[in-house]
Design a binder for these strands. Structure first.
Lengths: 351, 351
DNA sequence: CTGAAAGCGCTTACAG
DNA sequence: CTGAAAGCGCTTACAG
């Protein structure tokens, strides 16, 4: 059967059922009670005509589309994929669908997205922002309902976060308790810490907190910038090795980064955890299946996302309610990759 | 600045610029030329009022929303995430946005999606179908423009596929060339091969083809059903080990399954590739970073997705054009995990 | 190149 | 519980 050029409308259904369009609408939306007899007739007519409501028309009339947007830097990383999965599932459970956009770490694309939100194609937006300082949130006049995900220090918008600073501190403490003293940090350098990425900055700050508390000196030569992916983690690990510095542990700011680091350490002949401890962050499925299994900081992705959807729903319902920030608990998940004490890696003497 | 209850419309812009709404529309859509002077006045008015077009209204009028749907079983697996990433990027490049839905391997959810497509919220749908036999595609009267992704034997719908049977054959041949004779197949059993999942069935058929060609006897005790995830791969590998059968290679039908299998083999004390060869399928980023690096069947995810979007665009433009099926090339990517010959695993003698 | 009218398909007051 | 009217914001013929 060919796809029809024009689909039946409520008016067609109404004619066939011998009622007014309003009555069909009542049956479809279910907001106003309809007599059993009429409802049956209308439903029969809908089936016969294969009627499907036009949501553009409904959206135009209601100002709601039932679609929310989810914007994140890169859908392909394990953590992003896990969160996106949770968003889609949680939205589905609420009768919402999700439009996904990638910002590719470019503020301009983030801006586009917010702009699109304002075109009424979506009711609201969950935004995993690119950067702290120039987030679109501060630069758009009429913001649609937005919930931020991540450690953005931003008080004009609802947000969900984990305490990344505390988590960074917990991670570094754990590594030191296992005997590490020279921790390579794959996640960013001190200098650009606040300028670039809020999450990175906070995790690094937590690490430095732990160093201070343990009276361990921070070692800038063990900090390195990193792309947020497996390949990025591998590159960063190679960079550390190329510096020919001593280290006995690696703290990667995401599990994907840790996977890349693990690979390079194996390749280099360093054993984990006998020589070097390694830990990640996020507790993606994969972390339990690396070799050795990866210690990480975990938090409930479903809770995280549920909190975001709750905030968004509230914001859509009431634009003037006070802004809220919801913290989701995190916890250390110790696995074999940090079973110390590590022997440590001493670079070969320079020629 | 508070979010305004009602946003400015073209009419407001027209009034402010002293022109008709039609002229504003001409400026916005750019289809009809507008004099430089008028255009400037209109654009100024748009900026002053912070005008944003209402896409629901445009969609109602045009019958096009600029949104496409992408439906897949589970967004969180590495392969799905990679494909979804490519879909979003390729769509973005064409000025389209993507609504993502998960079918959770449930035909009912697949049906919902197609139904939603018909509500005109999306212009078309790229569908990675759950099953062969009861795909929604055969059960819906008025199908919206749909492109299938995957090895569905289905000729009434446009589709993009790789030759999974040939790929399965190539994989098994490669393992045998490396010296393997007893290949554990993590992907499905012969019995349900055609009943359940087209892709699985074809890959398995390819493996059987290779066995025949090499005059190697197929071993049903080495075939196992598997959930399409890392944990599923681990479970399947444990299942094979629990059967206490000999094997010298593992062919996992996705890289994620292979990652789970690798983990369990390590855990069991079997060395890859010295004792057992392992290979996967899909060539996700991760495959190059397992230990040892994972041999796999690769194909260009971007090409794959681009082909799907091209087909969808053609279908949206012409509902009556003949159906097309586009094959995307695949290739064996040999890495260390299959560097044979393998010693093989012989289970301990029963007590 | 610009304008006045009509309508896409739905739902919200307003009557009955 | 049901109906007739109006309008959400845009764009497509149709005139000028």
């Amino acid at each position: 059967m060919p796809y029809p050029i024009s689909r039946p409308t409520m008016r067609d259904v109404a004619e066939r059922a011998g009622v007014s369009p309003k009555t069909v609408s009542n049956v479809v939306t279910g907001t106003v009670p309809v007599s059993e007899k009429t409802r049956t007739r209308v439903e029969a007519a809908m089936v016969e005509l294969d009627f499907v409501p036009n949501l553009s028309a409904r959206g135009l009339r209601n100002g709601r589309t039932g679609v929310i947007g989810f914007a994140l830097p890169d859908l392909a990383t394990a953590f992003s994929a896990s969160i996106a999965h949770s968003v889609v599932e949680a939205a589905h459970a609420r009768g919402l669908v999700v439009q996904i956009e990638e910002t590719a770490f470019e503020p301009a694309r983030e801006y586009d997205l917010v702009y699109r939100a304002r075109t009424h194609q979506i009711d609201g937006l969950i935004l995993n922002p690119v950067r702290l300082e120039d987030s679109v949130v501060d630069h758009v006049q009429h913001l649609p309902p937005v919930v931020l995900i991540g450690e953005v220090e931003q008080h004009s918008t609802d947000r969900v976060f984990i305490d990344s600073r505390q988590a960074g501190r917990t991670a570094a403490q754990h590594l030191m308790e296992q005997g590490a003293r020279r921790i390579a940090v794959l996640g960013g350098t001190t200098t650009d810490m606040f300028a670039k990425q809020a999450t990175l900055g906070q995790r690094l700050q937590g690490v430095l907190d732990a160093f201070s508390a343990a009276q361990v000196k921070a070692a800038p030569e063990l900090q390195v910038d990193v792309r947020w992916s497996i390949a990025g983690g591998a590159d960063a690990m190679r960079e550390i090795l190329a510096r020919e510095v001593e280290f006995d542990a690696v703290f990667a700011f995401t599990d994907s980064i840790a996977v890349g680091a693990l690979h390079v350490l194996h390749d280099y002949g360093l054993r984990v955890p006998e020589d070097v401890l390694v830990m990640g962050f996020d507790n993606v499925e994969h972390a339990a299946y690396t070799w050795p299994p990866l210690t990480t900081i975990g938090f409930d992705h479903k809770d995280y996302v549920t909190a975001a959807l709750d905030l968004l729903a509230s914001r859509v319902a009431d634009r003037n309610a006070p802004t809220r920030a919801v913290e989701v608990a995190h916890t250390l998940i110790p696995r074999r990759s940090t079973q110390g004490p590590p022997r440590g890696h001493t670079p070969p003497a320079s020629p």
